[in-house]
Computed example of a mutant assay.
Amino acid sequence: MNAKTADKLATGIIVFFAVLIVAILAGLLGIILFRGIAQIDWHFLTSPSQNMKAGGGIGPQLFNSLFLLVLTMIITIPIGLGGGIYMAEYAREGKITAFIRLVVEVLSSFPSIVVGLFGLLLFVNTFDLGYSLLSGAIALAIFNLPLMVRITEQSFRAVPREQKEAGLALGLSKWKIITSILLPVALPSLITGTILAAGRVFGEAAALLFTSGMTTPPLDFTDWNPLHPRSPINPLRPAETLAVHIWKLNSEGVVPDAKQVAAGASAVLVIMVLLFNLVARWFGRFVYRKITASKRME
């Protein structure tokens, strides 16, 4: 086999697997959307679920998923970025650094249900936070921190060394180099890492069964005092998310239209993830253009 034939064969194999992956993804999305899109309307998206009769919606569960995402990202992003920047720019290579990397790798391989049990023992019981949005957010932050730390470290290490040396030659401080030179270049990778972490929050159910709970109290969406028990932004109330609701409907749902509600909720969850990816990528490109343009003007 000559080189040209081998190249064509390898290219054909690569294209085949690429098309296969796209076809599998399109098939999964098509099946989920086909089954659930007919269930989606304004009533379905805003009304509460029903326990014994048909016609319920996913309003509280949808809000809980979005609110939990915000809480989790508020905890995860600063700690993940700080840890990754420290590992990439400040930590000296040695036994301690190698041990930290080992801990990060071990945490990244933990099953989510183990993280949920840890959250149940520590946050729900020991810290007496109960089944709450805050317990779930902290547990998911622990679940996502290894990913954020690793992506941040790799993103900063991937920046060409010459750019950092140019900043040192100009007399810039280390922090100024990080914020003005390294961060704008690493931003696209950081946005990708944030999207991956957020996607795991949207789809996670096992860890939340033991931390945020499987019920949602009646919510008063006119009450935005976070200290009130029926306030939707109270972080200490139990909250059933969309993924947990789907699992609950498929495993122990007693409403007559449980399968239809689960199909509609699955379609909404998929659409949410797709929209979040598109918006996050657009925002990342917008911020990147703004940062790089401002640096050029300076």
Rank of each mutant, 00 (worst) to 15 (best):
P229Q: 09
L168H: 13
L120E: 04
V255S: 08
A137F: 03
A23D: 15
A166R: 06
A26E: 10
F118T: 09
A98I: 05
N250G: 09
V70C: 02
G167A: 08
P256H: 03
E162H: 11
Q61N: 03
K259P: 00
V124K: 06
G203M: 12
K174P: 09
I151Q: 04
A280C: 09
I85K: 10
K53L: 10
V201T: 15
F17T: 10
A141N: 04
L196R: 05
R157K: 03
R289T: 02
P256N: 02
I31D: 04
M272K: 06
I40G: 00
G80R: 11
Q50L: 11
P48W: 03
F34V: 10
L227W: 11
F202P: 08
V70M: 08
I195R: 14
I233W: 03
I58W: 08
I113E: 04
M73T: 05
M73W: 14
T97Y: 08
E252W: 14
L33D: 04
V279N: 04
G171M: 10
L129P: 07
T241M: 11
I75W: 04
T216K: 05
V22F: 12
A206L: 15
E240Y: 01
T5H: 08
R289E: 01
A169P: 07
Y131K: 13
S47M: 05
R35P: 01
I113R: 02
Y288W: 02
D220Y: 08
T222I: 03
S132I: 01
N144A: 13
P160M: 11
V15M: 06
E240R: 15
K248G: 14
W175D: 13
A205H: 08
P60G: 02
T46N: 00
L107M: 15
A169K: 11
W42F: 10
L129G: 05
F286C: 07
I138M: 15
